[in-house]
């Protein structure tokens, strides 16, 4: 079955899932954490019958200090780099037990959650293996807050160009991160899995609908979720949702889906907001000069155009 044919219910304001959140209050995420907001919404979209696997990181530490856990579904955390591998084992077990008559009667989505470091750096191998092996009920969510926040704001391969972190500091010689953000969704898509999507918690219905779609598809899915970190980005905590909107409207973080290898941009941005508006509310970009912003703008526009080209050349073929 093609991914576009998967049947799922869109999340709307009218049918917004009722009942308690699957991620309980009392977790220790920072004030205004955009990552835990994304997580809360994603989990809420999935109902109650699924299993979650966490990589070590902010979301794991702040939700599971013994003797407490914020997770209301069965949840396991093992280590940093292996959420995809642990989820592979859980998925294989639920699959085979069902076949052998000792499991559940229905498919059980297994959701692996990791940060950008746990995904794009140390966890990339395990993720690649899991995507390549084509586990049927496997959803991988990268909550990308663009640095190692849990250990104190060190740079990762997802840290944006020129961002100031504790290991890509702004000095008299350097201007912060000297590499461009690794294109993780493209790497996931290169495994020719049925579904890859990007999302942010500000477009909450879109975010929640995407994980529902991922769960409905038979085969692995990868979601890359923009996850603002007021602490690490040196930003006012109340701006976590606003910054998502800016990331999309400036084309810094385009919202798109790759279904069966075909592209669909969910929010077209024809007249982008000036990128300077995005930078000025974040302390991590405080040092940028006008020409730096120009360099970044050029790159962001080129990346966006590439996505537009892909979506025109290989458009999603919706079923008749």
């Amino acid at each position: 079955m093609r991914a576009v044919e998967a049947v799922y219910e869109k999340v709307t304001a009218k049918n917004f899932p009722k009942g308690p959140d699957m991620l309980a209050s009392g977790h220790r995420a920072c004030q205004g954490c955009g990552e835990v907001l994304a997580l809360r919404l994603l989990l809420k979209a999935l109902g109650t019958e699924f299993i979650a696997v966490s990589a070590t990181g902010c979301m794991e530490v702040c939700t599971g200090p013994y003797p407490q856990s914020a997770w209301r579904m069965p949840w396991i955390h093992v280590a940093f780099e292996n959420a995809a591998a642990v989820a592979s084992g859980v998925e294989a077990a639920t699959h085979v037990l069902r076949r052998k008559g000792r499991g559940y009667n229905q498919r059980i989505p297994v959701v692996a959650v990791a940060g950008d470091g746990g995904t794009a750096d140390i966890g990339l191998q395990a993720l690649s293996g899991a995507l390549e092996r084509y586990h049927e009920n496997f959803i991988y969510v990268c909550l990308d807050n663009e640095a190692y926040m849990n250990t104190g704001i060190q740079r990762s391969s997802e840290t944006p160009f020129m961002a100031n972190t504790t290991t890509s500091p702004v000095g008299s010689v350097t201007k912060g991160q000297y590499t461009w953000k690794k294109d993780m969704p493209a790497i996931a898509a290169a495994h020719h899995i049925p579904y890859v999507a990007t999302a942010t918690p500000a477009q909450h219905l879109d975010l929640m609908t995407k994980i529902r779609r991922a769960a409905a598809i038979e085969g692995p899915a990868y979601l890359h979720v923009y996850s603002p970190c007021p602490t690490g980005w040196r930003m006012k905590p109340e701006l976590s949702v606003e910054i998502c909107k800016l990331a999309v409207s400036t084309r810094i973080f385009p919202l798109y889906e790759v279904l069966d290898g075909r592209y669909q941009i969910n929010r077209k941005v024809d007249n982008p907001t000036p990128i300077a508006d995005y930078f000025k509310v974040q302390g991590r970009f405080r040092h940028l000069k006008e020409n730096d912003v120009a360099v970044i703008t050029e790159r962001v526009n080129a990346d966006y155009q590439r996505l537009v080209d892909l979506s025109e050349k290989f458009p999603v073929e919706n079923p008749a």
């Binding site: 209050s25 220790r28 003797p67 407490q68 856990s69």
Partner: peptide
């Protein structure tokens, strides 16, 4: 508890309101 586990949603025992 066996396996050093916790009950689901038990962070509700921890009131973060005083932050």
């Amino acid at each position: 508890p066996l396996g050093f586990t916790a009950k689901p949603g038990s962070t509700m025992d921890f009131k973060t309101g005083d932050w």
